[in-house]
Amino acid sequence: MAERPTTSWRHGIVEEAQEVAAGTLDPECACMAELYPEELLSATDAVLDAFEGELPGLGEARDEQVFAVVERVVLALNAVNDANNGGAFETDEREELCDYIDESLAEHGVDVTALTARQGLGPYQLTNKWRKW
Results as ranks from 00 to 15, higher is better:
residue 18 Q to H: 04
residue 30 A to E: 05
residue 12 G to N: 14
residue 108 H to Q: 09
residue 128 N to F: 04
residue 4 R to W: 08
residue 115 L to S: 09
residue 23 G to C: 04
residue 91 T to Q: 08
residue 2 A to V: 13
residue 84 N to V: 00
residue 7 T to P: 01
residue 117 A to M: 05
residue 22 A to H: 04
residue 62 R to I: 03
residue 112 V to A: 05
residue 107 E to A: 15
residue 3 E to I: 13
residue 23 G to P: 05
residue 115 L to A: 09
residue 41 L to W: 03
residue 57 G to K: 10
residue 120 G to C: 12
residue 68 A to L: 08
residue 29 C to Q: 14
residue 105 L to Q: 03
residue 67 F to P: 00
residue 69 V to I: 09
residue 3 E to S: 13
residue 78 N to V: 07
residue 44 T to F: 04
residue 104 S to C: 13
residue 104 S to F: 03
residue 86 G to T: 06
residue 8 S to M: 14
residue 123 P to Q: 05
residue 81 N to Q: 10
residue 3 E to P: 00
residue 78 N to Q: 08
residue 101 I to L: 10
residue 57 G to A: 04
residue 73 V to W: 03
residue 6 T to R: 06
residue 132 K to I: 07
residue 55 L to N: 08
residue 68 A to V: 06
residue 113 T to F: 00
residue 38 E to F: 06
residue 26 D to H: 09
residue 29 C to Y: 03
residue 72 R to N: 14
residue 66 V to R: 04
residue 79 A to S: 13
residue 70 V to Q: 07
residue 29 C to R: 15
residue 131 R to I: 07
residue 5 P to V: 06
residue 48 L to G: 05
residue 66 V to P: 13
residue 86 G to P: 00
residue 108 H to F: 11
residue 36 Y to D: 02
residue 73 V to H: 03
residue 101 I to P: 12
residue 31 C to S: 14
residue 2 A to I: 09
